[in-house]
Design a protein around this nucleic acid. Structure first.
Lengths: 150, 150
DNA sequence: ACCTCCTGTAAAATTTAGATTTACATCAAT
DNA sequence: ATTGATGTAAATCTAAATTTTACAGGAGGT
């Protein structure tokens, strides 16, 4: 799974947990069915989110709940929790250049400084979006869905 | 290879072609040795760059040369040439959600609109960087390299 | 206390996407 | 013609990651 898809799964889970976490017992099995991703991968994702303090997972009895206000959960935080060096993976350089070639020797330095601004922009973009924003979109989509039924 | 790494290889090739394309015959074999990527993949990359009009590759006798001024070659153009839907691949959504779940049914719409701004930022960031800028970095790195010898 | 359900991991098996290899038709210059 | 290169296509290989399987450990209900 592409790292961005993995983070999308994480957001999917967070929406689900926000919506149902208080009323029902949200297990990895349930999230697995909703996302289409197997339970072990879901547990790994939840585990990362838990370590970051974004959610709480009851061990033993099971069930996940949000531990933060949606407005405090930025996409940056989620991506970082799932994959600490997501920036380098997302905007990266090939690792095989030849040390014998002037271009090969320097390509890493050159592209790293070139990519820095892009990475920074990406970071601040992700930082500016919170789960609250995503939930707003989600509820909008739900409403449109309801209307289309009638 | 991650798509960003592939585009980095493309930029690597472009630097190489700029530096040596006029003096020497820059073949896929040569670029293969410099980048550490096999000749066929290099030829595929060159083929994409050629189709976009960024470079010219002499068929028959061989050798690649730039067809544009470095100032006209933006990173956006390069990435787009290599992978037309790189934005969706870079910032994407999992494709397996359940249609039976409200979250699953809507996650694609929700995240697509959420990601739109991020994708736009990324586009304009990549559009604002040209091969000219990269070459400037490269020549700076070369100078530092020379100095460190003495 | 026991039983059940779930988490948290680890290890093995499987998948799959992509790279590499191989092959060859085509083209241009010597 | 011969040589050396491109441009693809097809087969093979590889490596990364998911999925499967397995199991120890925790928490609550009976």
């Amino acid at each position: 799974m592409h790292i961005s898809a993995k983070c999308s799964v994480a957001v999917h889970c967070l929406i689900f947990i926000y919506e149902y976490g208080e009323k029902a017992k949200v297990t990895s099995e349930l999230l697995s069915r909703s996302t289409g991703i197997n339970p072990v991968t879901i547990r790994n994702i939840l585990s990362s989110l838990k370590k970051d303090g974004i959610i709480d997972v009851k061990s033993g009895t099971g069930g996940a709940t949000l531990k933060c206000a949606p407005s405090e959960i930025t996409l940056y935080r989620v991506w970082k929790a799932i994959e600490p060096d997501f920036l380098a993976k997302l905007i990266g350089v090939h690792s095989t250049p030849s040390e014998l070639c002037p271009v090969g020797r320097n390509i890493h330095d050159v592209l790293d400084s070139t990519y820095q601004k892009i990475r920074d922009d990406l970071s601040s973009g992700l930082s500016s979006i919170t789960l609250e924003d995503v939930l707003r979109e989600y509820h909008g989509a739900l409403e449109r869905e309801d209307k289309s039924v009638f």
